[in-house]
Write a protein that binds this DNA or RNA. Structure first.
Length: 275
DNA sequence: CTTTCGTCCTGACTGC
DNA sequence: TGCAGTCAGGACGAAA
């Protein structure tokens, strides 16, 4: 379930391996991903060099010479795998990008919640996928004042609000739980009550949690790439996510980490610490 | 307008 | 052992 830190780590890892390389072949094995993959990618991308690999929200952007941008989203189960050309293809390799030097990038996604799309550099900001996205939480302009403004008047829970990509871009179920834990805010709290000092603390917690996860990803990236060619799935040390029943790492309460369901999604938190 | 809910998909896991 | 059932999650469109 790649969220912002995993996607950032993948983009950095791919940059190290693919920057400046020319795409020799683009092969699409199936078109019916989350959205239909647009036609004509092969003609638009083949023969071009990669000029940058960046991230926006949970999207990975492959920028090519001439202004074309291949957009990838990994959904739940998506992976980008670097392999030697000639290695046997794996099940669910939906797209295979062959680069000069004999390296292949394979888009593999069993559940097909992921997607591939295309835009030009000029159209990127106005693209359907990006038009309504909220601010990047690691951008300099993201702070408690901006977050308070985004949450003002919202009647949903703070959990649901942070999952909404129009409020903040790139957070998913895991890092929302972790951020709320960091800020000692209850996931049940109404979003509109997170103002002032609470918003400042939440914005800081979001940035801290994400920055730490990216740092952890970066430090494990080299070994992981060498081991398997698969990027971005590194060892995490989450405080509450998936820890139902375990002790809260920061207080002595006996109740432990609770799991509740909000909007059909699990939330993990310490009911004593988070108010 | 805002908010909630159902839907897509399949591997991993649970329980009988 | 085998099989049926449940769960997980991101994003979007429909419904309320």
């Amino acid at each position: 379930m790649p969220e912002l830190p995993e996607v950032e780590t993948i983009a950095r890892g791919l940059t190290a391996r693919l920057l400046g390389k020319r795409l020799l072949s683009f092969k699409l094995n199936r078109r019916d991903l989350r959205n239909p993959v647009p036609p004509g990618l092969k003609a638009k991308l083949e023969g071009r060099r990669v000029t940058a690999i960046t991230r926006r929200a949970k999207y990975i952007l492959f920028h090519f010479e001439g202004g074309g941008v291949l957009i990838a989203h990994l959904g739940m189960s998506g992976r980008l795998v670097l392999a030697d050309a000639g290695n046997a293809p794996a099940p669910h390799d939906h797209a295979v990008l062959g680069f000069e030097g004999g390296v292949e990038l394979r888009f593999n996604d069993a559940r097909r919640f992921g997607l591939l799309d295309y835009a030009t550099e000029n159209d990127l900001a106005a693209h359907k996928l990006f038009r309504h996205l909220g601010p990047e939480p690691l951008a300099p302009e993201f702070d408690g004042v901006l977050l308070a403004k985004l949450l003002k008047g919202k009647k949903t829970s703070i959990k649901a609000a942070l999952l909404d990509q129009r409020v903040v871009a790139g957070l998913g179920n895991i890092y929302v739980s972790e951020s709320l834990y960091g800020a000692a805010l209850s996931p049940r709290r109404l979003a509109r009550t997170v103002q002032g000092e609470r918003a400042i603390q939440l914005a800081q917690a979001i940035r801290d949690v994400l920055a730490r996860a990216i740092a952890a990803g970066g430090s494990s990236l080299r070994d992981y790439v060498q081991a398997s060619g698969e990027l971005g799935y590194f060892q995490h040390h989450w405080s509450v996510y998936g820890k139902e029943g375990e002790r809260c790492p920061r207080c002595d309460c006996s109740i432990g980490i609770k799991r509740i369901v909000q909007g059909g999604r699990s939330t993990f938190y310490c009911a004593k610490r988070q108010r």
